[in-house]
Design a protein around this nucleic acid. Structure first.
Lengths: 254, 254
DNA sequence: ACGGATTTGTCCGTATGTATC
DNA sequence: TGATACATACGGACAAATCCG
């Protein structure tokens, strides 16, 4: 009886735990890891599984090993902490918009495929409230509600969880202010049209159209945000480009 | 009905005795059961009958088994930390693939825009290992490492966090088996080509191509998964039917 | 310079579940 | 049903490299 049957699932488990270990370790200089046998015991995996995980990390360049010397962390944080608080500290509005552009068009497409008449009614009710809102708070609130309703209608629980995670990060007060600045009066009219177009596409079950409208909408939002951030004074022309990305500007920190 | 009167088959007998065994010895947790060969003899049934009974108990969640390790009473130790467990219970492989198809092509595009030569080298190192892996565990491990390396290269910390969340859900043991079945030998060659094409596109900084190859790759994976789920019986000729892929276009370099 | 101790790298035997006949 | 081959996992044993006194 080799003790109790512990977890052994495989090397993926070992890899997961090793990543956590490396992330939690201080970014100090080339931290040495325990010997393989000790480490295997600590992580609750076999040495073979551990070694396979170490091979991956070595190929990724996060650790280096040498026979007779030991295993060392190459000190590369990479920061994967999934805590919401910490995540919202590390990310930025442009990253968030990249994610929204990636996810929400898909949500719109799925929503078009799946929406019941009741769902469409709900979307219309919410959209009506956006136009009726005269203050920033109201617009923010109802706009968020509309996007979330689309996400719910899509009916994919995993995507909805991801959407909620992003939504919570968006709540940050500093960003709300930024968004309201980007929501100038003339743009508000465009947004309203886009929302109407989106709902119309969902109502007609035109999946492709719904996806396209949502993408165009979010790309406009992103570009507006970018414009506000880069040239706060002038607001003359907002280049609505539907091509996927404006490369150089969108790269954050160089 | 050969002999024995009451019992329709001896699997039921084995099941009864196994249940009694599990009930009578409910000590701590993760109790290890004797090897199948021994257990069959102890219970006075054939190994095949015993295994069918064990299948039932595993489906009920009362035991878990793992090749090379043994059979254990209790629930399978899962490593998913921090609330993901709940999510992984509610979602399903097809939802996960929807999310991956939504996110990873974008990651590939961003990776192409941002990759340094060192990043490309790292991707190539990892990809080489996939082909060199002869066993299922190795392929799974290195395939996951490649997709994660692309996600890291994209340089969007929020997207990376989302990717990690999905990746952890993917670790679920039941799904891994499913994926390996979908990774039949003939498909492995296609995947290898697609991985090569992806890296070539990233190396050439062809953002659009990288995005397209990644989408085609994931759509093929999704369709293979679907095929395995819907027609489990026939493995003889696996029709690689899919509207998504056009192999000729996938050859980039070489 | 030497030798023992420690650590990674490698191989192999055994034990176990899985699949096939 | 029973038997056989196969795949996987773990641990021990040993070699190679390094470190240290």
């Amino acid at each position: 009886m080799p003790a109790a049957g512990h977890r052994s699932d495989s090397s993926s488990l070992a890899l997961d735990r090793l990543r956590a270990l490396l992330d939690s370790a201080p970014p100090g200089t080339d931290q040495r890891l325990p010997p393989e046998r000790t480490l295997a015991e600590d992580l609750g995996v076999g040495r073979r599984a551990l070694r396979r995980a170490l091979e991956v990390l070595e190929a990724e360049g996060r650790i280096w090993r040498h026979q007779g010397k030991g295993t060392f962390a190459g000190s590369r944080p990479v920061a994967t902490g999934s805590g919401l608080q910490e995540l919202s500290r590390r990310t930025n509005p442009l990253e968030v918009m990249e994610v929204r552009v990636a996810i929400e068009p898909v949500l719109a497409r799925l929503a078009a495929l799946r929406a019941s008449n009741g769902d469409v009614e709900r979307l219309q009710r919410i959209a009506a409230r956006i136009g009726a809102s005269s203050d920033a708070d109201g617009r923010e609130l109802w706009d968020g509600a509309l996007h979330r309703a689309v996400a719910e209608t899509a009916g994919n629980s995993l995507l909805l969880a991801i959407f909620d995670m992003i939504d919570r990060i968006r709540q940050d007060a500093a960003w709300r202010n930024l968004r309201e600045r980007a929501r100038s009066r003339e743009r508000r009219g465009i947004y309203l049209d886009q929302h109407r177009g989106l709902i119309a596409a969902i109502e007609a079950r035109e999946a492709h159209a719904a996806e396209r409208v949502m993408r165009e909408h979010l790309e406009l939002v992103r570009n507006s945000l970018l414009a506000v951030m880069t040239e706060p004074a002038t607001e003359a022309h907002a280049p609505v480009q539907d091509e996927a990305v404006a490369p150089a500007e969108l790269r954050y920190g160089t």
